[in-house]
């Protein structure tokens, strides 16, 4: 049986890397006595996968882990045990059974929602900057990878962008095909001010991750269903 867990990663734990989060969950499942299935072979490992890795330094309330169970555990019971075994900075939000034929969290993600604020600065006329940006047909930015730099039009990758007080809420493309980092959107936004922000100068929080459906974007949390006791 496949199960999806939604969790948060906040506070001091933003400084824990993706692999350490994986190791954290491996131990949490043992502490919470969750019957996770293991792979076969000489060095068996838990059947555990995550959605799109969260960058170091970023908070999130919309992270996902998919696991395979050897036997069913009711959602309420599993949540109580996982919460008891976890630190406050990793909150366990849901524990839902996934349909038999279902993409794993990593493959399913196609959009992410972020809330981005400026750490030590106040940007005036944020709303005007947003409307100017969204009016553009093309937003060409330089995307740096380890190997090369290339110019990419990110306008089609921005699904929604609006202000929320001094912050920006955005829904942008995510996943293995067209992954867009929120700081690239911010820098396209503030380009008219000739001001570039590093990710350390921003306070970024991932709100949720989405997959596509005939009805539009659906939160990864909506795919499964509660396991009754």
């Amino acid at each position: 049986m496949k199960v999806r867990i939604r969790f948060s990663k906040t506070g001091a734990l933003v400084y824990i890397g993706h692999l350490d989060v994986m190791r954290y969950f491996q131990k949490l499942f043992v502490r919470a006595d969750i019957p996770v299935a293991y792979s076969e072979g000489f060095s068996p490992h838990q059947l555990l996968g995550f959605s799109h890795p969260l960058p170091l330094g970023m908070e999130s309330v919309g992270e996902y882990a998919d696991i395979v169970l050897t036997r069913s555990v009711p959602t309420d019971e599993a949540l109580a045990r996982l919460r008891a075994g976890s630190v406050d900075e990793i909150g366990i939000y849901s524990f839902n059974e996934l349909p038999e034929k279902c993409e794993n969290a990593m493959a399913a993600v196609c959009a992410s929602e972020y809330l981005v604020g400026f750490r030590d600065e106040k940007i005036h006329d944020l709303e005007k900057l947003v409307s100017d940006l969204l009016e553009k047909y093309e937003i060409n930015v330089i995307k740096k990878t380890k190997k090369s730099e290339k110019v990419v039009n990110i306008r089609p990758l921005i699904f929604d962008l609006h202000t929320e007080d001094d912050k920006l809420r955005m829904m942008i493309s995510s996943g293995s095909v067209d992954n867009l980092k929120p700081e690239l959107v911010i820098n396209a936004l503030t380009a008219p001010l000739e001001r570039e922000f590093t990710s350390e100068e921003l306070i970024m929080k991932r709100i949720d991750q989405y997959t596509s459906s005939p009805d539009g974007f659906v939160s990864l949390d909506m795919i499964g269903k509660k396991i009754d006791g």
């Binding site: 506070g11 001091a12 734990l13 400084y15 824990i16 890397g17 350490d20 131990k27 502490r31 170091l56 075994g85 976890s86 630190v87 900075e89």
Partner: peptide, 9 residues
């Protein structure tokens, strides 16, 4: 940085 933040289980 995890060396310096505490908050472990």
């Amino acid at each position: 940085p995890a060396r310096y933040i505490g908050h472990e289980v």
